[in-house]
Amino acid sequence: MTTTTTGTGTPASSPGHYTFDNANPDAEQQVRLLAEILDGHTTDVLAREGVESGWTCLDLGAGAGTIATWLAGQVSPSGLVVAVDQDPRHIRTHQLIDVRIADITVVDLGTDVYDLVHARLLFMHLPQREDLLRRAAAALKPGGVLVVSDWDCRRLDEMLLRSTTDVAEAFLAFQTALVGLAVDNGASADWANRLPLAMLDTGLVDVTAKVHNELWRGGEAGCLLHACNSRQMEAALLSRGVTAEQLAVLREGMADPATVAWSYPMVTAIGRRPEQ
């Protein structure tokens, strides 16, 4: 069974916060859609890193727990996966997953502990991202691998390829407001582009990176995620100037099979801690 431990709590003065709330009624659908959109890419990358039985892995900001569960299958029967999240309610129990409830920005990750550290759609949201990168690198055993994936949110006007004019206008207004809200909360729209150099500056070696994207049609996971995000963040979006009519048009467009859209480009960077 999964064991759940509690890490260091969030200090009152901690700057920035994660924009989305796992307790929101739409959060379960959101993390499920994210897994459907991204898990194939993530597991392909991790498989090429040779995750094997007996490894100890750390999954930061584990979300739905699907990657932690995949890793548990790879390290079985003698390995362990530690999944850290401030609200891990969507992570299913597994005998090889140790769920730790903690504020990732301050929790002690240890030193020389893990064969693999993984994080997806986490660093971009945290103003302490560079400090966390250093701590994640230090948590690796010598020769261990760090895999970080984040969305590049700089080209919002290039995402929607085909739809009506009304949907296109609503889509861009929604994306601009959503990314603006995230940035106000401490996120970085261009962090993914800087991620490989940040890994090198941290002292990691053999750093590589790739950009992943997929095309989605209305009614598919990549479009339904936008509709889901619009519901989860509706009050904040309205306060930022997006109208209720625009949100309704957006949701209708994201369900229309005639709509064609890219996801945000995902940058996945991989680095290794030097052997000692």
Rank of each mutant, 00 (worst) to 15 (best):
R194W: 00
N213S: 14
L247W: 04
E28D: 12
M199E: 05
G271S: 10
W151T: 12
A221K: 09
E234R: 15
V107N: 11
A255E: 15
R134N: 10
L34G: 15
I91Q: 11
G222Q: 10
T5K: 08
V207R: 11
S163N: 12
G271H: 08
H212N: 12
E49P: 00
T164M: 03
T56A: 09
D112A: 06
E275I: 10
R154F: 00
A182F: 02
L181S: 05
T208L: 00
S14Q: 14
W70S: 10
L178Q: 12
A177P: 03
F174R: 10
D103E: 15
G144N: 07
L225D: 08
A83Y: 04
A235W: 01
E28H: 07
R217E: 11
H41V: 06
A187N: 07
R162C: 06
L204S: 11
E158M: 06
K141G: 03
A269I: 05
R48W: 01
A221N: 10
A139M: 06
A248C: 03
P265K: 07
V31A: 09
A221T: 10
L132S: 10
G203V: 09
E52Y: 00
A235P: 00
C228Y: 02
K141L: 13
L71R: 08
H226S: 09
Q86S: 13
R120I: 04
P15A: 06
L238I: 13
W55D: 12
R92I: 00
L195M: 14
L60V: 14
L178M: 13
T43H: 03
G16P: 06
V179W: 05
G180D: 08
D85V: 04
T69L: 08
P127D: 12
W70P: 06
S13I: 04
P196C: 07
V31L: 11
E214V: 01
L146D: 11
C223R: 05
E275W: 01
P11Y: 09
W191F: 15
V249Y: 02
D152H: 10
A12P: 02
E52Q: 14
G79N: 05
L237H: 10
L60E: 04
A168E: 13
F123G: 07
D59T: 11
D87N: 14
T6K: 10
E130F: 02
P142Q: 09
G63L: 01
V145W: 01
R135E: 06
S188A: 14
N193W: 02
G7A: 08
A23F: 00
Q128R: 12
A227P: 02
A137H: 11
W191T: 05
G63P: 03
